[in-house]
């Protein structure tokens, strides 16, 4: 397969996944906002999210203060912000357009109609229901995933789509947890006072609340939420599951120069597969997650070097 094609497929799936993750993040805030809170608590939570997403500084360049309305606008609809939901959907569509001959026509039509429809939401920006929009983004993402799994040949192209999806998934789950990890915070295994509800919301926004009940049949504690989202490799969006998929798909496309990247992906996966949560969290939840984000970024750079823009052989 053409290296450029692999590059577009990889970024197409990363942007689809990123749009969905943003919708999930915003959904947690949206649900939270329906409860009574002091304004400073609301501002603190938004700030934590913007920081976890790595866009707090960029946000401050455009907005004087952290308010739910402007943060939502910035993360959902700001076309000039490359990390907004709308910008991600556009980039997913542009990448798909560049390889529309490689993906199935159903995949292309799904991504293209998502883009055509989101413009309707943009036009109605002020009027529509926030929850309704976020739900729509998630459903479109479900549809993209379904049409990919349901129509695409399990060839190399499919592998690059999967690598993009799960590398982005690992990044997103780490960031959502990071937004809950104030400096020095170590999760404990007991229901956590006034903060308890935010952990439930985190689970809900990752579609993991019912799973949690099924697995633990007990109260929601920060420790168990972390364990579920980091180590459970049967949970679709857990770090362990994502690392496993990245490793497996990377091995399937291995080439002459990718051995070191494979090794690092394997090491990344092993940390979750054979590690213990006590050890992993020893430096604190925040430091652990920062480390995860670095490794995800490193894998991203290495994958690009090995497969997506191979050096000219001349």
């Amino acid at each position: 397969m053409l290296a450029r094609t692999a590059d577009h497929l990889y970024w197409m799936s990363r942007f689809i996944e990123r749009a969905e993750s943003l919708a999930r993040t915003l959904d947690a805030h949206y649900r939270h906002s329906l409860l009574p809170h002091a304004p400073e608590v609301v501002a603190r939570d938004w700030r934590a999210t913007l920081e976890a997403l790595g866009v707090y500084e960029l946000y401050l360049e455009r907005h004087s203060e952290v308010s739910p309305a402007s943060a939502f606008q910035f993360l959902a609809f700001d076309r000039d912000h490359a990390g907004s939901i709308v910008a991600c959907l556009r980039q997913a569509r542009e990448n798909a357009r560049a390889v529309r001959g490689t993906i199935t026509s159903e995949m292309w039509e799904t991504l293209n109609s998502t883009w055509l429809e989101v413009r309707g939401y943009e036009a109605a920006n002020a009027d529509h229901d926030i929850g309704d929009f976020l739900e729509w983004v998630r459903y479109r993402s479900h549809l993209s995933r379904g049409v990919t799994l349901g129509t695409m040949l399990r060839d190399e192209a499919f592998r690059f789509v999967r690598i993009g999806t799960f590398l982005e998934g690992a990044d997103a789950t780490a960031r959502m947890l990071l937004a809950r990890a104030r400096p020095g915070f170590v999760p404990v295994d007991e229901a956590a006072g006034p903060d308890a509800y935010t952990w439930t919301l985190l689970l809900r926004s990752l579609s993991a609340f019912e799973v949690y009940r099924k697995v633990y049949r007990d109260a929601v504690t920060p420790w168990r939420v972390t364990e579920l989202l980091v180590l459970r490799d049967d949970l679709p969006r857990s770090l362990s599951r994502c690392a496993d998929e990245v490793y497996e798909n990377l091995r399937a496309v291995a080439n002459d120069q990718s051995a070191e990247t494979e090794r690092r992906a394997g090491q990344f996966y092993s940390a979750f597969h054979f590690g213990r949560l006590e050890q992993l969290l020893a430096p604190g939840l925040g430091a652990f997650l920062e480390g995860i984000l670095e490794r995800v970024a490193d894998l991203g750079v290495r994958i690009a070097q090995d497969f997506l823009v191979p050096p000219s052989p001349n």
């Binding site: 397969m1 053409l2 290296a3 450029r4 692999a6 190399e156 690059f160 496309v253 080439n255 002459d256 497969f307 997506l308 191979p310 000219s312 052989p313 001349n314």
Partner: peptide, 18 residues
């Protein structure tokens, strides 16, 4: 950019080499 010429032959750059 996906193509290059070496020894008067044309190749495309793929994920598995020329």
């Amino acid at each position: 950019l996906d193509l290059f010429v070496r020894d008067d032959a044309v190749y495309m750059r793929t994920t598995r080499g020329p």
